[in-house]
Design a protein around this nucleic acid. Sequence first.
DNA 1: GACCAGGTATTGC
DNA 2: GCAATACATGGT
Length: 279
Amino acid sequence: MALPDVPVLLQPDHFSPAQTFECGQCFRWDALPDGSYRGVVRGKVLTVSQRGEAIVLEGASQEEYDTFFERYFDQQRDYGAVCRELSALDPTLSQACSLFSGVRILRQEPWEALCSFIFSQNNNIPRIRGIISRFCEQFGEPCAENVFAFPSPERIAQLEPEALAPIRSGFRAKYIIDAARRVAGGALNLEEVAVMELGRAREALQTVHGVGPKVAECVLLYGMGRLEAFPLDVWIKRVMAQFFPGKQPDFFGPCAGIAQQYLFCYCRHMYHLDRPEVS
DNA sequence: GACCAGGTATTGC
DNA sequence: GCAATACATGGT
């Protein structure tokens, strides 16, 4: 038996667990009653919690951190420098940066990101979380009490769309099956897509039925560490029209995807200030 | 009951 | 090509 894992320290500057896990980039990190967050990544149950000035990761060994989770949490990037560069571009963006400076862009697993954002289309975040939760419960390997790994493409590829009925994903079920069959069958190699030239990567992802420009950008940004990707959803289209008319994503530079995430948070934050009665 | 939600495929002009 | 429209489901 392995010894219990020693908690791993995470970079506390420009990293707020709440902002990072609740900014809409991921759907499988849950707040616990004590304010820490529980997630399942690669079949491992993880906890991230604030302890005074420190942020600790439990559930992964130092070696697993070094080989995988450091990159998963984007620990190497200098978000202070990114914020300074973005803030210099525009006052609204500067405000978004300072309000949401604790957001880090997670590098989730490509297959999970692909499924998650297929489920996200024409849908709202609470319901996306519910669908993904049922998806894992129904088809994922159990990895702890009431905890399930994300289902493998091979498992999902064997199913017919009707088999997804219990997760209530609606018309998206057939898209998930198509994605699984392409990935499991080798027609779409996500590891290769991750390092392709951006335009080719977009094309490759959009060969999946149900994956258009927005979902492809989300997979690139949140599942492949491609920070130049810039998902244009309804919120970002609004904020672009209002504050950046005529501007293209490249206006924000090589970390446009981070700018996009700050603006997404900012836009929704402002909306909720205007409508405090809605969640 | 209409409208919306981190869109996309299909259809019609 | 580009503007409507359907698509499942659940919340407001």
